[in-house]
Design a protein around this nucleic acid. Sequence first.
DNA 1: TCTGGGGTCCTAGGACCC
DNA 2: TCTGGGGTCCTAGGACCC
Length: 417
Amino acid sequence: MIENMIFHIDVNSAFLSWEAVRRLEYGEKTDLRDIPSIVGGDIKKRRGIVLAKSISAKKFGIKTGETIYSALKKCPFLTIVPPNHDFYQKASACFIDYLRARLPLVEQYSIDECFADVTSDKNITENPIHAADDLRKEISNKLGFTVNIGISENKLLAKMASEFEKPDKTHTLFKDEIKYKMWPLPIEELFMVGRKTAVELRQCGITTIGQLANYNKDALIRRFKYARGTMLYEYANGIDHSAVISNMPLPKSIGNSTTIASDIASEEDAFLVLLSLCETVGARLRKKNLVGSTISVSIKTNNFKYYSKQIKIPYATYITNAIYQYAKSIFSTIWNGEKIRHIGVSISDLNEDITRQNSFFDNNEWEKYTKMDNAIDNLRDIYGKDIIKRAGFLETNLSHMTGNKQDGNETGLRSHL
DNA sequence: TCTGGGGTCCTAGGACCC
DNA sequence: TCTGGGGTCCTAGGACCC
């Protein structure tokens, strides 16, 4: 007797599919999904990695996350299109809304994945495969892209199921199917087994999920510590008690980071980048009406060494300038002069009570900064991000806001946007 | 022309208190 | 007199996800 029924719905090659739909609507003849193609960053700006790939690109052995340089070696005539994150956000919202209108309880897991608890819907539970197939067809017809749906009794197994053959497929992975559908898979395929863990498991002689499931649990805990060891053992055995939650809890942190097109070697240059990152972090906080009280700065050097530091500030804020002042002082304490490739700013200890920041600031100061930031946000919402810049940016060619966003030129995902 | 940007969670070790 | 032990909080770094 199955107590719960969970669907995991995963957009096939999301960024690439969405990009393909957008281009077809613009009248482009070629469907990116029909040719070897990828969505990838700009090599000249040192962001040259594969973000999404078509099925035929996958057949050349191209993997998400690998460098474009390496992808081109595998397929020299690969079509590469730049990412368009603002548009993906809209396509994602459209996808999630569509699911929420049709399924009883939907949890967004990432930009292109949802869990749905369909236990309460008799029409679905009586014939889940049929219901999932119908849902897939609907999405494909109405929104123009395909999804995989995994069906099981918990989130982990539903997610593992949706990873089976792609694209445009429904798969089940119920408890009694684990032995022959999941256990023969290589250990890397298990959710939460990344590169490092896979190497360690193989050192223990564990190469398949089934071997992990039948390994001594205490030995796993000794090797991987309690939380991780337990999780690995349970996941390999298909155990997961986490619930599908509909309303997104508050985010734990909001950040912005960027890889600079060429290495930074002076504090002056670093401060400009920091300011642009703080602009984005502040604007994102204000947009969500959140304040935060722990600020952290991270640096990646040109040798890929990482440094980070965080401080708790005596009040919570969403004011760009306040975040920036702390970020500068953190930066100065961690930077030892090595050439910098990447800088990040992030704020945590988030809170919805925006009056809290009042207690520290002089009332007039707080009001002044808040009014200024809000005015800037409004101008940027109406006229675009470049309408106003802080003075420091006027004589540089640095982007004054990063955020990995592009403005304008987005169109509908069919008629649904 | 090698290696993004957005997050979450966990751990070890230090500071500090009683 | 010869360094206990429990508890909490903080933080840097590392692992993982998409």
